[in-house]
């Protein structure tokens, strides 16, 4: 059978479900952020599919583009925070070593 809306929705649903699984099973912050990216991708597949099969025009594609932009921004902030934590871990270790020496 040929491609229908349902095909794409199934892929979007699977991406979303696997993203949720990633979020709940991982303890690593970067891993959880990857799960969020999967969720957003599932959303984008849905949006583009609805746009193509149901709504027409390009509104869904524009929506998906904005989602991509915001996802990039969110990833930037999230990873900046992860790196800061990494730095503070290291700096805490260094300070600990200093006090031990005194």
């Amino acid at each position: 059978m040929h491609l229908t809306l349902t095909h794409f929705l199934v892929v979007g649903a699977l991406l979303f479900a696997l993203g949720l699984v990633t979020v709940v099973t991982r303890r690593n912050a970067v891993g959880i952020l990857m799960g969020v990216e999967l969720i957003l991708n599932g959303t984008n597949v849905n949006l583009a599919a609805f746009n193509h099969y149901v709504v027409g025009g390009v509104s869904g594609q524009v929506f998906a583009l904005f989602v991509i932009v915001l996802a990039a921004a969110e990833a930037a902030v999230g990873l900046a925070i992860v790196l800061t934590i990494f730095q503070s871990f290291r700096s805490i270790d260094v300070r600990l070593a200093d006090t031990m020496r005194e």
Binding site: F16, G42, N46, L47
Partner: peptide, 12 residues
């Protein structure tokens, strides 16, 4: 992300 997924269904 979850909210957005719900929104995509509303849109459709």
């Amino acid at each position: 992300g979850v909210m957005l997924f719900g929104m995509s269904y509303l849109y459709g």
